[in-house]
Design a protein around this nucleic acid. Sequence first.
DNA 1: CAGTTTAACTAACAATCGTTAGTTTTGTAA
DNA 2: TTACAAAACTAACGATTGTTAGTTAAACTG
Lengths: 188, 188
Amino acid sequence: MKHNRKEEIVIVAAKLFKEKGYSAVSMRDIAQQMDIKAASLYNHIKGKQEILSSLVLHVAREFTNSTQTITSQDGTALQRLKKLIEVHIDITLHHADAIAALNNDWMHLDGQDLLDFIAMRDQYEENFRNIIKQGIQTQQIKAKEPEVILFSILSTLRTLYLWNEKRGKLEVNVLKKELVAVLISGIV
Amino acid sequence: MKHNRKEEIVIVAAKLFKEKGYSAVSMRDIAQQMDIKAASLYNHIKGKQEILSSLVLHVAREFTNSTQTITSQDGTALQRLKKLIEVHIDITLHHADAIAALNNDWMHLDGQDLLDFIAMRDQYEENFRNIIKQGIQTQQIKAKEPEVILFSILSTLRTLYLWNEKRGKLEVNVLKKELVAVLISGIV
DNA sequence: CAGTTTAACTAACAATCGTTAGTTTTGTAA
DNA sequence: TTACAAAACTAACGATTGTTAGTTAAACTG
């Protein structure tokens, strides 16, 4: 099956991208990690760009779909926000390496892929922003600057992939509970 | 003065590094942005590595020194935490581009520079961690998992450089006040 | 077993990389 | 104006980059 081998390449590449970034990883680096020669990679993929766009767009779509689902179902702003945080944690734990590329290497996407990514990212943020605004309107959330709240929560969620390793003993459900509590109720 | 020209190079390079990352920016890119040829850069700097280490180590030292100062002065954990957030905001607003490199390109440092950076980063995190633990002991801070609190606040602060541009109208002191409130007291 | 596809290989390409050497221009001080 | 230093230039280097062409060995399919 071609698919398996291609997926292997993407997974291996993601690990390397996470450590050094897209530009600092050569096709020969990726090949070496798979115990083949660089030219052999091209039996399975079109080029380096395809590896990146496979990685980034796939996980970007997951985020976009999840957010759409949450905002289409009913629930208070706070319930939605909690769900959003939990979903973000789930996706991060399943695709830690891909999320590194999504965070740090998206700007190396080309042409339509780049436009698609930016559109998805903007839509995701807009959904997030609307939930917060809704929460402020219904007075579930303090009337702080919405952008500060959005930025604060989103920063934490986006960097979660880095802390996933250190997490170690912390159970997923405990992590969810603690993080939801800290982000929503603060620390005092 | 040699110093001025070298600083110009570092500033220009920082802006490019922020957009595409250290590895994706060539010496020719930097030179072009300064309207000179790449070879001319070497009249002022030793090489590409020196640009990176100037950028990263300088601002890393600022963070380390500020944290040391805060922990050496007396004050409750919460007062220290507040001060730490404010100082972090100040440094970020003054060195937004350098912080991009510090966050994303530190792994491309070489030899002793890399070791020095890691040591400073670890020390910074350890100081931060101790303040939080102190706060939990004195019951100023909720008895949540310290690592989750540390990770959450630090993620937000480290990503602040990205939101600095969008901040736009938001006054520095307003930003400080809002962010301190959100990070410490939560949003409900 | 024969025929065909899959996936590896070697070799090489044009482009670009960081950097060096040697030279010329520019600016300043006597 | 002459002398010197600073800072630009041209040209080129060896290494590495992503990628292609052509070939060979292994693995299915009839």
